[in-house]
């Protein structure tokens, strides 16, 4: 379990990092919580490793009324402690174990795009985005683009980032006024990737009507987002029926840990729990 040979780059600034990525067929190393095991098991064999840990300016997170922008080097644990976004904070507590959260990065987890991971679902349910940068060789400078979540997660372990691109930050929009959020999952052991999980945002309007949106993990090629739309008055919303809609939107696969039927069943159970919890919180926030 030793990695195959690779060339190691440790750029000191963003420009150098982007230039390296433009020049070589490289893989970005941030927290390394997925990449290093994959290297050691020789499941990945990049010729170049671009370690961005020394790049200045990527660690900061920015909180505005619009939402939280998390820098590429912000660790799970830092973002969790900052508690700037209730759903993000809740989801981070479900990510693996404290030791992994001390090193792993939020943006790295998004780029890794594991369909069973929590953070892609959070970004997707909130309609957030990832900011990607690449080096424009002709122009001699960095070029940025903002990739919305629905375009970012392309498939299992596959994001929309180009080989020369670096995800420099991710933006998690703030919950609308009168909103509640919840993340429910079942994993085999504490901290494991979920067999199935559902995060939900329920927004209660000034009229008391609830709108809901959910995203599921572990039951599709990426986060499965279901916009449930308007569900009527929050006190009388049909959460069971809404949960059934979420369940029907998923098409999970069987693996050694769970049958497809069980996963699908879990989605229904967890969606109802998540929606009810989010609705309770949303109603309280609205004072309804």
């Amino acid at each position: 379990m030793k990695p195959p040979p690779f060339e190691y780059h440790a750029p000191r600034d963003l420009g150098a990092a982007l230039r390296t990525l433009a020049e070589v067929d490289g893989k970005v190393l941030a927290g390394g919580q997925s990449l290093i095991p994959m290297l050691n098991m020789r499941l990945a064999a990049p010729a170049h490793l671009v370690d961005i840990n020394r790049v200045g300016g990527l660690g900061a997170s920015e909180v505005t009324p619009e939402g939280v922008r998390v820098g590429a080097l912000a660790r799970h644990a830092e973002v969790e402690r900052a508690a700037a976004h209730p759903l993000l904070t809740r989801a981070l507590k479900l990510v693996a174990h404290p030791v992994i959260r001390n090193r792993g990065t939020v943006v790295g987890s998004l780029v890794h795009a594991d369909p069973a991971a929590e953070l892609p679902a959070v970004l997707a349910v909130l309609g957030g985005s990832v900011r990607a940068a690449r080096w424009d060789t002709a122009g001699g400078g960095p070029v940025l683009r903002e990739v919305p979540a629905e375009e970012f997660f392309v498939g299992p372990m596959e994001s929309a980032l180009g080989p020369d691109e670096l995800a420099v930050s991710a933006f998690f929009p703030a919950l609308p006024e009168g909103s509640g959020a919840a993340f429910e999952e079942v994993s085999r052991r504490h901290g494991d990737y979920a067999l199935a999980g559902v995060c939900a945002v329920v927004t209660v309007g000034a009229d008391g009507a609830a709108r809901a949106r959910a995203a599921c993990v572990g039951v599709g090629a990426g986060p499965v987002v279901v916009d449930l739309g308007e569900l009527g008055p929050v006190r009388r919303a049909g959460w069971k029926a809404a949960a059934a809609l979420v369940r029907e939107a998923t098409d999970p696969e069987e693996d050694i840990h769970a049958t497809a039927a069980y996963r699908r069943h879990l989605v229904g159970v967890l969606a109802e729990r998540a929606l009810r919890n989010a609705a309770r919180e949303g109603a309280a926030a609205r004072g309804a």
Partner: peptide, 11 residues
Amino acid sequence: ISPSELFEARR
């Protein structure tokens, strides 16, 4: 016995 197996056994 896993939760998935218990679920299937219930069915």
